[in-house]
Amino acid sequence: MMKKVIMYLNQFYGGIGGEDKADYEPSLLEGVVGPSKALDDMLTAGTVTYTILCGDGYMASHTEEALEKIGRLLEGLEFDILAAGPAFMSGRYGVSCAEVCNYVHKRFKIPAVTCMFEENPGREMYPQSMYIMAGSKSGAGMRKDMPKMAAIIDKILKGEEILWAEAEGYFPRGFRWQIQLPKEQTAAKRTVAMLKKKLDGEPFETELPIDAEEMVPIAPPRDASKSRVAFVSTGGLVPIDNPDHIPSAASTRFGRYDLSGKDVLKSGEWKSVHGGYDQTYANEQPMLAMPLDAIRKLEAEGKIGYFHPWFYTTTGNQTNRVNSVRMAKEIVEYLKADDIDTVIFGSA
């Protein structure tokens, strides 16, 4: 039986119109148009039943409403996968595709596939919610991009194993899985072969690609006596019963604990759950991880203008980029709500 695919297109590719129609609100078309027809023709395991159409401008300026509306349009429909794009180098379209894929994936628990150029800002928004095929820079690449989307959609619909990013042509989603090579390809052989290439100035390919860390603009210096200060930590200190079940490594959540009325953190009331070091020191003296007594003293001396009453804490070891960024954004929301402009950040 053919599986059902729904595809998302912007106003331009959906045939609604150009930039003048960018504020077009989401609508649902039964059947196919333009790229969704092309996709439908290529698929062997599925058929495109509906096409969602939405203007890029509307999605950008009314994201939440647009997504909610799309959710309502899809409610009650049967479908197995969402396709979106391809978006090429179009930033607004790429971001729209990523937003819709993420939303539909989470709301309807189905896989989502899109396609865009590597520098499209939509690429890094929700890497684990979808497969983003590495696509062309401009619309002239449609003929190259569409077969890539069709190929992976067919594989997903047939329940075939999805191989690693390079083999399938999608951008890495932040997962690493182990595979077995032929037995004779030992790490010793691979290591020495790579070293010889590097010594000879020949091209070589690392097996663990590491992105260069992008730097953020340096925030201005602040006089703490005139600032609003908070303490955030990845040292793993939590209340003794660990009420939020902060894990010892690879954390996906943080705890937020009230320090109001406290001048010290006492042994027996707090403990460290950090799995990366010997926890006995922090268990005996929690202020080796969160120096509240020192902070209170500085506050009393007027050297800290205002101290935020909540302490934010998680474990930092082996927490991946996606979760770190998300947790930090959530913490920033709390901090901004209290006009915090200065943070002391403790870690191992």
């Binding site: 603009p217 600032s227 955030v232 947790m327 913490i331």
Partner: peptide, 27 residues
């Protein structure tokens, strides 16, 4: 990485860490 995200919002952050090499590597 959390430090960087907090600073991205305009908040000034001091990262107090023993493993300064890691703090440097995460920006």
């Amino acid at each position: 990485m959390m430090v960087k995200e907090i600073e991205r919002s305009g908040i000034t952050v001091v990262h107090v860490a023993n493993m300064t090499a890691v703090a440097q590597s995460i920006g």
